[in-house]
Structures are given as structure tokens and as C-alpha cells.
Design a protein around this nucleic acid. Structure first.
Lengths: 105, 105
DNA sequence: AATACGTGTAATTTTTTCATTACGTGATGT
DNA sequence: ACATCACGTAATGAAAAAATTACACGTATT
């Protein structure tokens, strides 16, 4: 996939207040499962999942199935993929070739 | 407006390949008017405007009406507002209060 | 007067996104 | 057995975004 498109995907994933809140929740609270995140954010589980999948597709978050401590249950944990992105015109320009990325004449 | 919402607005504005291309066009080509941008990006004028307005609302781009050199015409120029944003969980977390920004119990 | 460029904006269509509610599943605890 | 808590996901509705086409206006050139 195009680098510029990948950057857009990341930016887009971070372009919603609720998704930013999920990032903060995971940053401060560590890995947790869906219901916990939905509860803390004050939204339905289904909605939380949609947003988390968007974050996951952009590589901001990853999920793994793991055993709950002291219990014989396997649950899906969501956790942050650490990132540190710098965005400026110069940086964005670097993602694009010399051509300008037009759609032709 | 909420700081987190403002950040989301900026990220969202940068969350589309075409808008990123506009940023690059303005970065490399300097201020220009609508038709020029639309032509270079290979899209209709109306569509270019929609995207530029979104960029403008996010503070990425500004527009001013100025006289064309050697002509007695006033046209609207679009230009970049220089920015340099760092995005990481820690930074995003800083935009939010200690409360976690929930919607209440 | 017609052509060429620039403007703005309205109408429309298609596609996504956002958000809720609801149904069915499996494990645990009372 | 029943309530509880986790899962997934399907169905639906409402709103927003993406993209096109078309119309009307002004100015300058041929």
C-alpha cells in the first residue's frame, strides 16, 4: 500500500474523540478487554468494538487472546502499540514521490 | 472547545489521501488558487473546495483574497499554515484531564 | 460576441461512519 | 436453575463525508 495512504489511515484512526479516549484509557490503564473499555468510555460494547477495530487496522492498537489470571478463561485483550508520529508538511511531503502524486492529465 | 476534540479535528483533516496531497501541493508549490489545486490533484473544483474547507476548519490551511500580479483581479489564495504535530499516547494523554474523560456513570 | 479562466454554490447520489438495540454463545458463581 | 459477565455479530437507523454535475457571475482576450 501507498505510504501516503498508510499515513492517512493512521491520521484518520486518530481523528475521532472517542478513539483518542480509547488510546488514553489503554495508555493509562494498560491492556484490558472490550467490556471494560466500553464501560469506562461510557459507550455500548458494539460501538467500542467498531472503533477499536479501526484503531487496530491502523496499527495503533493490537489485540491478543490471553488467559485471565486465576481463571480458566481466555479473553481478548486490547493493548496499545506504542507510536510516536511527527506530522508536518515536510514530513508528509517526504511520503510522496517527486511527481506530486496526481492522477494524470 | 475541548483540546482533545481539537486534536481529533486536526487528525481527521489529515486523515484522507487527497487532503494530504493538497498539503504537499501547497508545501511544494506555495500559495495558489482553487482551480490550480484542483487541476494538479486531478479532481473537480467543487470537490477540491470541500476538502480545502475541511483543512481550513482544522487550521491546516488558510485562505486570503489577494490581487493577482499584473492583473486587476482579486482571487482567493489558499496557503499552508505551518504545523508540526507530535502524536503519541503520552501526548494525547496530556490533552485529557485526570478524570479520563468519561461520560459519567 | 464568443472564448477562456477564474469565482461561488446548489442539487444530487453514493458510500461511510457513527451509534443503538438485540440475539445467541460459553463459563462462573449462588 | 438462574443470574452474571464475558464474547461475537447481525440488523437497523441517522447523520456525515465523498464525489459528481450543473448553473450563474465577473473579467479579460481574440
Amino acid at each position: 500500500m501507498d505510504d501516503l495512504v498508510k499515513l492517512a489511515l493512521k491520521m484518520d484512526a486518530l481523528g475521532h474523540p472517542l478513539r483518542l479516549r480509547f488510546v488514553v484509557l489503554l495508555y493509562r490503564g494498560g491492556p484490558m478487554y472490550l467490556s471494560e473499555l466500553a464501560k469506562r468510555a461510557g459507550v455500548s460494547r458494539a460501538l467500542a468494538k467498531v472503533h477499536l477495530i479501526k484503531l487496530q487496522k491502523a496499527g495503533i492498537v493490537k489485540s491478543t487472546v490471553a488467559l485471565v489470571p486465576d481463571e480458566a478463561k481466555a479473553l481478548r485483550y486490547y493493548e496499545l502499540v506504542d507510536f510516536d508520529i511527527r506530522v508536518s508538511p515536510a514530513v508528509i511531503s517526504g511520503y510522496l514521490g517527486e511527481d506530486g502524486g496526481g492522477r494524470g492529465e
